[in-house]
Design a protein around this nucleic acid. Structure first.
Lengths: 212, 212
DNA sequence: CAGCATGCTATACGTGCGTATAGTAAGCTG
DNA sequence: CAGCTTACTATACGCACGTATAGCATGCTG
C-alpha cells in the first residue's frame, strides 16, 4: 500500500516514468541517472520520456513538484492530526516521506527542492513558536534561524543515512534501526549538551567577540 | 594564510591539481566537474591530471585522502588543545575545515569519504563517553549510536548550508551568519526539546511498541 | 470518412568527456 | 655521454548520453 493514495490515472506511463525517475535520481543522483535507464525501469521507450517531460531537467522539475505536493498533503494531515505521539513534527515527516527518502536527500543536496526545505522550516518555525511560549528565558536566536538549523539537523539523518547506518551498525531505515535511532534522538533531545550556565558563558563569550 | 601549513613542496603541479579538483568537486559535484576544467584551474594540461592520478576516480580518492589527513591533524591538535571554548569538538572541526567545506559536503553526500565520517564519529564517541561519566541516569542508547546521530546532525549545517543560509536570510559561512548560527546552536543545545518526563514517556511508548 | 491530436517507438545526430597514446624536455645515475 | 625516470603537452579515440526527427497506431471530433 503506498503511503499516499495515488491520483486517479496515476498508473499511466507518465506516472510510471516519474516514479522510475525518482528512484533513479535518488539512487544515482541526477547526473549519473540516464533517461535510457529510467525508461527501461518504466518499461517505455526513451523517446517517450522526452515526449512527456521535454527534457531531463523538465523531468527533474516534475519530480520535485510531485514531492512538494506529497509533503504538503502530509503537512496538512499532520496538522489536523493533533494526537501525534512522535512529539516532533519533523521526525513525523521523516518517517512519512518513506519511499521517496533517497530522492529527497539527493534533491536537497543538489540544491534543488528549495521550496520543499522552506516549507519544512516554516512548519518547524510554527512549532518552535508554540514551544517558546512555555519558556521562561528569551531565546538566544530568532525563531526563523532556529527553525532553519533544526530542520537541517532533522534532515541530516535522511541525507547522511548511508554513513549513519554504517556507523550505527544497522540500517537506519530498517525497523530495528528506526528503534535505535528513536532512542538516540530521545536521549540527545532530553540531555542538553550545554548546561544553562555553560550556555550563558558561551553567549557572553560571543558578545565579547562581537564587541571587539 | 591557509588553515593548515602546506606540506613542503605543496605548490607543485600535483598539489595545484588536487586543490583545483577539491574546489571543482565541491562546487559542481563529482560528475559535473570535468578533468579539463580542473586542469585549466590548475593551469596544467588535462593529460597531466591523468599522469599523476591515473583516473578521475583516483583523483577523487586523493582528494579524500588529503581531507582525511587534514581532519586527523585537526583532531590531534584539538585534542591537545584543552582550552577549547567552543565546548563542542564537532563545531570546532566544522569551522576549521574551512575552505574545504563544500568538498566535504559533496563527498559525504555522494557516499565517498566514509573513513572521514567514521573518524568524526569516533571523535564524537570519545567526547560523549566523557560526558556520560557526569550523568546520573543511564543513556537510552549506545554511545556509538548517539555519536553517529550527533555527528550527522552537526554536519547537516555544512551539508545543507545552501538551504540553511536561504532560510536564515544570511550566508552561514559569513562571519555574521556564523554568529547567528552559534547563538542558535547554543540555544538549541541548552534547551532540550523533550523534558525528562516527556523523554521517559517516549521511551516507555517505544518499549510498548517493541514488546507488541 | 477526413482531419487531427495524443501516446508511443525507432533511429539517428552531435557532442562533451574520460581515457589512451605518442611525444618532448629536463634531471638524475652509471 | 648513454640510458632511464619523471614531469608534462598535444592529439586522437570511443563511447555514453541528451536531444532531435520521423513515423505509426489509436481515438476523438466535425
Amino acid at each position: 500500500m503506498p503511503a499516499v493514495a495515488p491520483d486517479p490515472g496515476d498508473l499511466t506511463a507518465r506516472a510510471r516514468i516519474r516514479d522510475a525517475a525518482m528512484a533513479h535520481f535518488g539512487e544515482h543522483g541526477f547526473d549519473r541517472a540516464t533517461i535510457r535507464g529510467i525508461a527501461e525501469t518504466a518499461q517505455v521507450s526513451p523517446g517517450l520520456v522526452r515526449h512527456h517531460f521535454g527534457s531531463k531537467q523538465g523531468l527533474r522539475e516534475a519530480c520535485d513538484a510531485h514531492l512538494v505536493k506529497l509533503i504538503r498533503q502530509l503537512a496538512d494531515r499532520t496538522h489536523d492530526d493533533s494526537r501525534l505521539e512522535n512529539g516532533n513534527p519533523i521526525t513525523a515527516a521523516r518517517t512519512a516521506v518513506g519511499p521517496y527518502e533517497s530522492y529527497l536527500a539527493r534533491a536537497l543536496v543538489e540544491g534543488a527542492a528549495a521550496p520543499l526545505f522552506d516549507e519544512m522550516v516554516e512548519l518547524g518555525a510554527r512549532w518552535l513558536a508554540e514551544a517558546d511560549r512555555e519558556r521562561d528565558d528569551p531565546p538566544a536566536a530568532d525563531v526563523q534561524v532556529r527553525a532553519a538549523v533544526s530542520t537541517a539537523m532533522a534532515l541530516s539523518i535522511t541525507v547522511l543515512h548511508k554513513h549513519v547506518s554504517r556507523a550505527m551498525g544497522t540500517d537506519v531505515f530498517s525497523t530495528e534501526g528506526d528503534e535505535l535511532l528513536a532512542r538516540a534522538l530521545i536521549d540527545l533531545h532530553s540531555h542538553p549538551l550545554l548546561g544553562r550556565d555553560q550556555a550563558r558563558a558561551a553567549l557572553r563569550a560571543l558578545d565579547r567577540r562581537q564587541n571587539r
